[in-house]
């Protein structure tokens, strides 16, 4: 109990204020699980994805078919594993595109300001006035559905929101002294946005990316459920629900498990984001 004792703390995540609480950890675990399944899915499927392996259809869970079989007698577990590939892959690509574009333009608009900012903001706000599922429907109606079209459409739908969010954050950072100093030094816009603004808004932007990921998964599943998303013979989780909707009145696992897969992914991302350490989430404040 000597007063001059030096207190020593290891720089653990907890010590630095980056630790997650239990709900956040559960969320993270589920997210990592689906990430692994999505990446290594091709090698994990117990049966070939498109092959009819069960003589019965909508069969219940059993030792050989852990999640039952679908409306043609294909193994559900294999199809859900491949579904993760499409759902997570498409959603992640679109959200990355949307947020990259949105955040870059948001930062540029905040730094440049003036008419560029006004016009871009008004235009993208107008874009926000279109309901997302509807926009997807219209584009798919016009150009037909394929995976690149889906990725670009979903990215277009969610870029304006990312822009708005990043711009609001960047405007705050833009008024800080260190930005004024950098500007006085004669730094150009690319330097300003990459070295002064971006590091200071990165945490909230990543949290926003997670939430947008959830929205994209929801819209993608919705589109696929309507038969306008991922086309057969491929299927994401939404398409799996659509394919097997006939089994609903039988209470078949073929329609229940894809739904559980979607819900587990979206709910755990929400749980994870909600329980992010405040150091990351509200870094700009």
């Amino acid at each position: 109990m000597t007063p001059d004792r030096v207190s020593f703390r290891l720089p653990t995540p907890r010590g630095l204020g980056y630790s997650f609480n239990r709900v956040g950890r559960i969320g993270l675990a589920v997210i990592l699980f689906w990430a692994v399944v999505a990446v290594f899915g091709t090698w994990l499927t117990p049966y070939p994805v498109g092959k009819i392996v069960d003589s019965d259809y909508f069969s219940p869970m059993s030792g050989s078919f852990w999640m039952g079989s679908d409306y043609l007698g294909r193994d559900m577990l294999s199809r859900i594993i491949m579904g993760a590939h499409y759902t997570v892959g498409i959603a992640l690509t679109s959200v990355t595109l949307a947020c990259t574009a949105g955040v870059i333009f948001g930062m540029i608009a905040a730094v440049i300001g003036g008419w560029f900012d006004t016009i871009l903001s008004r235009l993208l706000d107008a874009f926000n006035g279109i309901p997302s599922l509807l926009f997807g429907l219209v584009v798919v109606a016009a150009v037909g559905s394929s995976i690149p079209v889906l990725v670009l459409t979903l990215a277009t739908i969610y870029a304006p929101g990312a822009y708005r969010f990043a711009r609001a954050l960047a405007v705050n950072v833009n008024t800080m002294d260190f930005v004024t100093v950098a500007r006085a030094r004669g730094e150009r816009t690319p330097y300003l946005i990459l070295h002064e603004i971006l590091p200071n808004i990165l945490g909230p932007v990543l949290a926003d990316l997670g939430l947008r990921f959830v929205f994209i998964v929801l819209v993608l599943s919705g589109l696929s459920f309507l038969g306008l998303g991922v086309q057969p013979p491929n299927a994401d989780w939404g398409a799996l629900v659509r394919e097997n909707i006939e089994g609903l009145s039988l209470g078949a696992p073929a329609v229940i498990f894809p739904s559980i897969a979607i819900a587990s992914l979206t709910i755990s991302v929400n749980m994870f984001i909600d329980n992010l350490p405040t150091r990351i989430r509200d870094r700009s404040e």
Partner: peptide, 10 residues
Amino acid sequence: SVPEFMVATL
């Protein structure tokens, strides 16, 4: 957090 069609199926 879940798609509308899931609420419907449930």
